[in-house]
């Protein structure tokens, strides 16, 4: 990953903290941590309990992460910015005491609130007020940098390698296995939503979502004779200023429009959710209408599809 992109994201986070009067951010969500510092970690499926995985200190501009080794970290972070994995809360408290700028923090922002962190914070930062900072991170991530657009488009192109593999292996007992092998030959083994393949008579319904270099890509559709069928009206409706009603009117099936970047992001707009949202230029969206899915960059000139078949 380009180090310029890592630095640009970090600066956005530090600026947002300054604007919001947040002295320290404690991030438990891997996507938020990856955004702030570019760190790659072993992927595991599903939710993780909240823990202090990444700490951004406004006064020093330093970012610290929970790791016992330097694999996966990006400059300017160094080994000295790490605190080690431990099972012992007392050892963790010692690590926290060693982070410059944490003990005197007035406001600590977290991306999820838990009773145990509240209790721990009262000991390592006695004067701190712990506040929700999920919106701070979501707002920073809402509008994509040009380097992020390029990264998402690259992952989308890789997703098509999986789609083409399914289409040329339709006789296989599970064509999804062909996609998994083809993606792995490109070094990609981490799913976002994963590989779904369903036979519908002569047609194949395919949806693939993966993560590559921290950024998600995806595409979906019903393929007949290797050609993708279906409406793109919802994609065409993804324009700056579009409302929930605009999108609902364009959709032809079960639909969902949601942010896509380092995985599943805001906004989330669909039946029963996101009634007050309005699309803005700079957003990147996963646009699902029935089995049809594309990744769309909302620009001032209209929707730009990032998941075009290469």
């Amino acid at each position: 990953m380009s180090n310029d992109l890592v630095l640009a994201r970090r600066d956005r986070v530090l600026d947002a903290m300054s604007d919001a009067g947040i002295d320290v951010l404690v991030l438990g969500r891997q996507d938020n941590a990856g955004y702030a510092c570019g760190m790659r970690r072993l992927w595991t499926a599903g939710t993780r309990p909240f823990g202090a995985g990444c700490i951004v200190v406004g006064s020093t501009g330093r970012i610290h992460v929970l790791s016992s080794w330097e694999d996966g970290i990006e400059p300017p972070m160094t080994f000295d910015d790490l605190y080690p994995l431990t099972w012992n809360p007392r050892i963790m408290a010692v690590s926290m005491a060693g982070i410059d700028g944490l003990a005197g923090a007035g406001r600590i922002g977290v991306d999820e609130l838990t009773p145990s962190f509240q209790r721990a914070a009262a000991s390592f930062a006695p004067d701190a007020e712990v506040v929700a900072a999920d919106n701070l991170m979501a707002d920073v991530r809402l509008h994509k940098l040009s380097g992020e657009i390029e990264a998402i488009a690259r992952t989308c192109a890789t997703v098509w390698v999986g789609v083409e593999a399914v289409l040329s292996a339709s006789e296989r007992s599970d064509p999804a296995a062909a996609a998994i092998e083809a993606l792995s030959s490109r070094g990609v083994t981490v799913p976002s939503s994963g590989v779904q393949v369903e036979r519908r008579g002569e047609a194949l319904a395919i949806d693939i979502g993966v993560i590559c270099d921290l950024y998600e890509g995806g595409v979906g559709g019903v393929f007949v004779d290797s050609r993708r069928a279906g409406s793109s009206a919802l994609v065409d409706a993804c324009r700056a200023g579009a409302t929930h009603a605009d999108l609902a009117a364009a959709a032809t099936g079960d639909w969902l429009v949601r942010g896509l970047g380092m995985g599943f992001e805001r906004p989330v707009i669909g039946p029963g959710v996101g009634a007050r949202e309005r699309l803005e230029a700079g957003m990147v969206l996963s646009v699902t209408d029935g089995p049809h899915r594309d990744v769309v960059h909302v620009t001032a000139d209209g929707p730009a599809v990032l998941s075009q078949r290469p």
Binding site: Q30, D31, T44, A45, P191, S193, G263, F264, V268
Partner: peptide
């Protein structure tokens, strides 16, 4: 048993 998807998906679709 929730689907074995990325945490960002699992968090939003908890």
């Amino acid at each position: 048993v929730p689907e074995a998807v990325d945490a960002s998906h699992a968090n939003h679709r908890r």
